[in-house]
Design a protein around this nucleic acid. Structure first.
Lengths: 233, 233
DNA sequence: GAAATTAATATGTAGATACTTATTTTTGTC
DNA sequence: GACAAAAATAAGTATCTACATATTAATTTC
């Protein structure tokens, strides 16, 4: 990676992490200044800074100007998840993807939907329900609301051939997203569309996006039984 | 933030992100070289580099030596979750935390548990079941296996007063973690310990940690009905 | 023409220097 | 002692320079 004997920032990161792991620096402790660590390890302050940045991002330490660097007193497990376009997810599993529009209509969203956007009133939004299939079996059922103010073009898209999921992800990038997971019992339309028994436990992925302060879309994706979300390395 | 008229790396990041959002650089497109962008924007290459690093980490672009920088062709929604120590999670919700050990014994783990560690055989591990309570109501039921090879001290810890969750997080930092979410129907011991009806839908958080290649612990946490996991930032 | 070598190229890394900014600590004043 | 102003401090940022490294493209060799 680097000239032998010279420390790269990953080396520095690993060394400092090791010290945190072996409690040379225990939770809550203050670490030496970047400059002193640089001196001790024999590298530039910039190299220590780069390493610290990484450790900070991974949730292991906290840094403050003048306050210095501290090992997080209350460690957390930080996990990152990538949620791809459903079509791609299915295809990458090696399955055949298909998609079916269930319904599409302009409606004033009910208050739980407005709450997800953080608004209290709203004009009509486009309400779209659809099923994604993997090898002809239901994979995800999505119930989506789209703000036609921020995405008016969606009204002219033929949603029987292209999923709103795909169109939005490719054409309406967001500046903020809220993701949450929970579990529900299959019932009513969800059970029917996923072709599962009422009472089946389903993982729900709820995503809401904004561009600036403007709502774009909120979607509740009910996954087929057995669906797992797996963190990225 | 910076001398007026001078671009900080966050400015550069925001400008490039804006260009990606407004499709100046569309999915799959190659971006100009860092050096050219630096020239165009009037800043140093290092500043562009710092901005690019951030955009790369957030999943918006992909960079390769010589290959250059490309807008991700298949955008993903990237979400980060912090999973704190359960005690702290409960306390931060303003509830009173309590903890109860259900069972503790040395056993050879069944193959699904070994599979989570990626191993095919194993000696006995410490198998711990426990309930975390919030305001005296079951909050999370955890079923945990601990490798006594990498964490022998756990055998001397009194797990009736301190949860394995807390002890491990504070004393056995890991170098790798795998996190996954899915949903199950409450049944048997899980339903009993969470005091919910059989068939209730529960969100399951499964975490496995290693130090180097050495397994530390794997835990399946069954959350009480209504539990939600919410993404950070 | 295929395979292997060489050159070109864009990002990655390390270091030095100078300055900025948030925050704490100290000092001075009432 | 309380409060405000000033000094000190540690991380953050920006720039320049030099070199490393991975990949692709071009060229040579057989």
């Amino acid at each position: 990676m680097t000239a032998p004997g010279r420390l790269s920032w990953t080396d520095v990161r690993d060394r400092i992490r090791a010290r945190i792991l072996n409690r040379t620096y225990a939770p809550g402790d203050r670490l030496p200044r970047d400059e002193d660590l640089a001196l001790e390890l024999g590298c530039a302050r910039a190299t220590v800074h780069r390493a610290m940045q990484e450790l900070s991002q991974s949730g292991l330490i906290e840094r403050k100007r003048k306050g210095g660097t501290h090992v997080r007193a209350h460690p957390v497990t930080r996990a990152t998840f990538d949620i791809p376009i459903t079509r791609r997810e299915v295809e990458q599993r090696g399955s055949r993807y298909a998609y079916q529009l269930v319904s599409r209509q302009l409606e004033v969203p009910p208050s739980p939907v407005m709450a997800r956007f953080g608004i209290h009133q709203s004009g009509p939004m486009l309400h779209v329900k659809a099923v994604h299939l993997a090898d002809n079996r239901p994979y995800i059922y999505e119930d989506r609301w789209i703000d036609t103010g921020s995405a008016p073009e969606i009204l002219n898209i033929d949603l029987t051939t292209q999923s709103a999921n795909e169109w939005l992800v490719l054409n309406k990038p967001y500046s903020r997203v809220d993701v949450r997971f929970h579990a529900i019992k299959a019932a009513g339309e969800i059970a029917r569309q996923l072709a599962v028994a009422t009472g089946e436990a389903l993982l729900i992925i709820e995503r809401t996006t904004w561009i600036g302060d403007q709502p774009i879309t909120t979607v509740q994706s009910a996954t087929a039984p057995g669906y797992q979300l797996i963190s990225q390395g």
